[in-house]
């Protein structure tokens, strides 16, 4: 096999146009190298894009775009990201260890399409779109459509995920990401929940966005739970009802980390905590 380091996005796209079928794009390598060693993938080429600094960081140019090579550590600690996308920053800070956060990238996390990928849920509540470039052009796809299922995305072999655009929370809005694992860190989520609530002037929930991960083949928006919350004042009974809707929307599995029933069981409690945090943050913001 071959290891090819590219110096520009154009070079990467040319390479993918040429041998995209056999290439594995590598940035931090934290997922790719493990999958390669376990022989879950068998590419003939590692296309290394880790030197493309133009794909790093948050840019505010009309919309908010985050480069695909932005590391989890960057997401978790950059004041710009923390201010613009607090739930995403929280999520990134829970990915693996410091060592993996230093090199693991947002683009890698999305393209790996793990059901438990931490960054997906907070991006789903931010109406994120991914930017996919190829030698002949560019397309933008809602993240929701990009993720097809467990370890499966809509990226074509000649495309490179270059950036993610997302909408930061607006006025009277709070968001958070809660992750459940057995240990205090270094966990693949047993369940993860991202919630963004926007309140109207008198404190009613104007808009609710709820996304869950690790409780279905891919992270998803729990629209039924959202509609229960919308228009409410987060009364105890309403949040409980939203919790039940959230449980109904989940299709978790039993695995070595936790049982399906446990995953269902914890969702309502996580939702209660998440909406409380959202409310606090929305108030603080004012």
């Amino acid at each position: 096999m071959e290891f090819r380091t590219v110096g520009s996005i154009e070079e990467a796209l040319a390479c993918l146009a040429d041998v995209g079928d056999e290439a594995q794009v590598v940035a931090g390598g934290t997922d790719v190298m493990i999958q390669h060693m376990r022989r879950e993938i068998n590419p003939s080429l590692f296309l290394y894009i880790g030197n493309l600094c133009e794909m790093e960081g948050l840019t505010k140019n009309g919309s908010h775009a985050i480069g695909a090579l932005t590391t989890h550590r960057h997401l978790a600690t950059d004041p710009l990201v923390v201010a613009a996308f607090p739930a995403l920053a929280e999520a990134a800070s829970t990915v693996g260890s410091w060592q993996t956060q230093e090199v693991g990238t947002l683009g890698g996390n999305l393209c790996n399409a793990s059901p438990a990928a931490d960054t997906v849920a907070p991006l789903l509540i931010a109406d994120a779109q991914v930017e996919l470039r190829r030698a002949s052009g560019v397309r933008r796809l809602p993240l929701d459509e990009f993720l097809l299922g467990r370890r499966s995305t809509a990226r074509l072999p000649d495309e490179l995920l270059t950036a993610v655009t997302a909408r930061p929370p607006g006025e009277r809005c709070g968001e958070t990401y809660l992750k459940l694992g057995r240990r205090s860190a270094m966990e693949v989520a047993i369940a993860g929940l991202a919630v963004r609530l926007t309140f109207d002037a008198v404190g009613n929930v104007e808009s609710a966005k709820v996304a869950a991960c690790a409780v279905a083949p891919r992270a998803y928006r729990a629209v039924e739970a959202e509609s229960v919350l919308e228009g409410s004042r987060l009364e105890e009974g309403t949040v409980a009802e939203a919790g039940r809707a959230l449980v109904d929307s989940a299709t978790p599995i039993d695995d070595a980390r936790a049982s399906a029933s446990y995953r269902r069981h914890v969702l309502p409690g996580l939702l209660v905590r998440a909406v409380a945090t959202c409310r606090e943050r929305a108030v603080e913001q004012r």
């Binding site: 057995r182 240990r183 205090s184 860190a185 270094m186 966990e187 693949v188 070595a256 980390r257």
Partner: peptide, 11 residues
């Protein structure tokens, strides 16, 4: 060692 969890410093 990902699935078999040994306690970390935070635990």
């Amino acid at each position: 060692l990902e699935a078999y969890r040994v306690p970390i410093a935070l635990d």
